[in-house]
Nucleic acid binder design. Structure first.
Lengths: 193, 193
DNA sequence: GCCAAACCTTGACTGGAATCAATATTTAGC
DNA sequence: GCTAAATATTGATTCCAGTCAAGGTTTGGC
């Protein structure tokens, strides 16, 4: 167990060391804040709608889906992969109940840092503030591109854009979730291939 | 002309003074960086697809639409109102040609700050770095909520969510652009009312 | 490795939004 | 305020993607 935690921390450290303006001291100060290891079995929930998201997570292994449970349907709005951070972002930022569910699609191992530990650190460390700002910019740009995908009227073009941008998804995630993510039925996605 | 510029700066200052942790000195240092006044007539472009976005804009008056010119269609992805900042964000952040057009829907007056002036200032001023980070978080949360709007299969529910969140749009923007923003035809929007 | 469950594919049918078209209304600009 | 242009509405029709249903395939878990 402790081995998994330190393995995850090593992955996170490797990622942070690629950011040129983050010093080794900063990174060493940051890593211990990731105190908790979360292990999920397939179909376990990291968070359910209605709960407040108190943590940011780093995915050490596994895949998750993020979905919006609307009436009967479940609308898939994204996925979480190894080496990425995930959380129910609006809930995490505004400290309010989540509209979203995060569910493991296979066995997952995640590191957790609490909101307070994270925001305190970012407020105090200018380099990490810059890092987080650039992460937010990167994610925001991604969301804006994604919006085009969703606005295209033809299922075919929506699929083509996803294939161009994230072909790896199709190897890792059941097609029915991808179909939902592309706002089409699984049957339509199947017929397009 | 100079009067309009200082009027715009006064609007911007009023907005910034509402952020508790921004000192008057910081604000006074920031404002002079908004050097340029841009005036647009109806249907003029602030930026066209293919151009690089070198500025961030503050809308002093008027309304703009942001759209993606895809093949024949024009897909509306957002609007810019008075007292808000706008730009072709992916282009501004990554210094690459814009995929989007920003067009005035009526006479607009905007203040402009260059990317370099803006980013230099934010890198040097920790309080403004915090402000910008929180702006990014706020905008990102908005985009995530918007994504649900787009994923809902029923035009009726998409419209209902927009009416709940931004009823003011319907007073300021031609319906045909709102229809595009809601990914439905103008006829469908008309029939829903 | 085996079994059961989950997932995917294919076909037939249906419904709802897009399109086309014509008229009415609003708005911009002189 | 007037005129032309832009926008909005309403109706008739079409067509594309959703639904339903059945069979086939893959995958997870013991």
């Amino acid at each position: 167990m402790a081995a998994v935690l330190s393995e995850g921390l090593a992955m996170l450290a490797t990622l942070l060391r690629q950011v040129p303006y983050l010093s080794e001291e900063d990174i060493e100060a940051f890593l211990p804040l990731w105190k908790r290891l979360v292990t999920l079995k397939r179909h376990d929930f990291l968070i359910q709608a209605g709960q407040v998201e108190h943590n940011l997570y780093f995915v050490a292994s596994g895949v998750l889906r993020i979905y919006y449970p609307s009436q009967a349907e479940e609308i898939c709005v994204g996925f979480g992969y190894a080496n990425n951070m995930v959380c129910s972002f609006p809930s995490f930022v505004d400290n309010r109940p989540s509209d979203y569910c995060l569910q493991a699609l296979k066995k997952c191992e995640l590191l957790a840092i609490s909101r307070t530990d994270f925001t305190d650190f970012v407020e105090r460390n200018a380099c990490f503030a810059r890092f987080w700002r650039q992460e937010l910019e990167r994610v925001l740009v991604g969301r804006i591109e994604r919006e085009i995908d969703l606005l295209l009227p033809e299922p075919e073009r929506r699929l083509a854009r996803l294939l161009a941008r994230s072909p790896h998804i199709f190897q890792r995630v059941p097609k029915k979730y991808i179909a939902s993510y592309l706002r089409m039925s699984p049957e339509t996605l199947s017929r397009l291939r």
